[in-house]
Nucleic acid binder design. Structure first.
Lengths: 133, 133
DNA sequence: TCCTTGATCAACCATTTGATTGATTACAAA
DNA sequence: TTTGTAATCAATCAAATGGTTGATCAAGGA
């Protein structure tokens, strides 16, 4: 039904998919190789149907794919979606850390010129670039 | 109310917190420096109360902290939580990629010995290590 | 063909989420 | 003290999530 899942939507689904310990457990298991729904359901105390739903969530998030093997339906991890998540996180984490390095430099050069250090940037809205790529 | 938020709970909250474009926008803005609720609410077409709730979600996830400045309450990014997320993701992404490298080696050494390549590992549960650290 | 296994579909239910409006707290300035 | 501003609290609501049970589909094997 969804025609054009925007970048936002894809990030929404992927982050949401990982916001559940069962689904993270499934990802952890799949990092070691493909598995069937029954195999994936085994460690958890919920019904197979519930696990099947979790796999659907992971699939719609692009984190896993399903193939066919007779009546089995092995689930495979797709690491590219994981990489997209770390890319998003690291982007802003690195901007934040760069800001701290710049602040350190500022403090190192203009030592003694106080009052700019305590909460520098509370209303520092210099360049308003795009929020999400 | 919550006494001991487990590692699972913390990951739950953090991933869930990022599964929303408004909250990701807030994180993006805070990567450039602290901001007040009003400043953070400005780009969005929702009420300040809604933004305040989003900030609470981010705060409970450990992604941001709030300080005091008279009647203002500047919000600061806490990059350590972001690092915890990339650590979790990269852990399993790297295991997955290592498995592919191993598979490549296997194919390189025993070329001609087929049938192990198509779906190697469908029931490969060698070592059952802990799912989450 | 009949039966078993693997997996999904469908309907339903309790809880949570995201948002709203209106009232209230906290602080500063007049 | 009164006024104004920043922010949260409280009550409410529609929609989504996570789980269940029961029925159904698909593919082999007896």
């Amino acid at each position: 039904m969804i025609v054009d899942p925007s970048a936002d939507d894809r990030l929404d689904r992927a982050f949401m998919a990982l916001a559940d310990p069962v689904r993270r457990g499934i990802i952890a298991r799949l990092s070691r190789g493909p598995a069937t729904v029954n195999e994936l359901a085994e460690p958890f105390e919920i019904t197979k149907q519930a696990v099947s739903k979790h796999i659907q969530v992971l699939e719609q998030a692009g984190l896993v794919t399903r193939t066919r093997d007779a009546q089995r339906r092995p689930v495979h991890l797709d690491a590219r979606a994981l990489q997209a998540l770390t890319a998003w996180i690291d982007r802003y984490r690195l901007i934040h850390e760069q800001r701290f390095r710049n602040l350190d430099e500022l403090l190192a050069t203009s030592r003694g010129t106080d009052a700019a250090a305590s909460d520098a940037g509370t209303s520092a809205g210099t360049a308003q670039e795009e929020m999400e790529s």
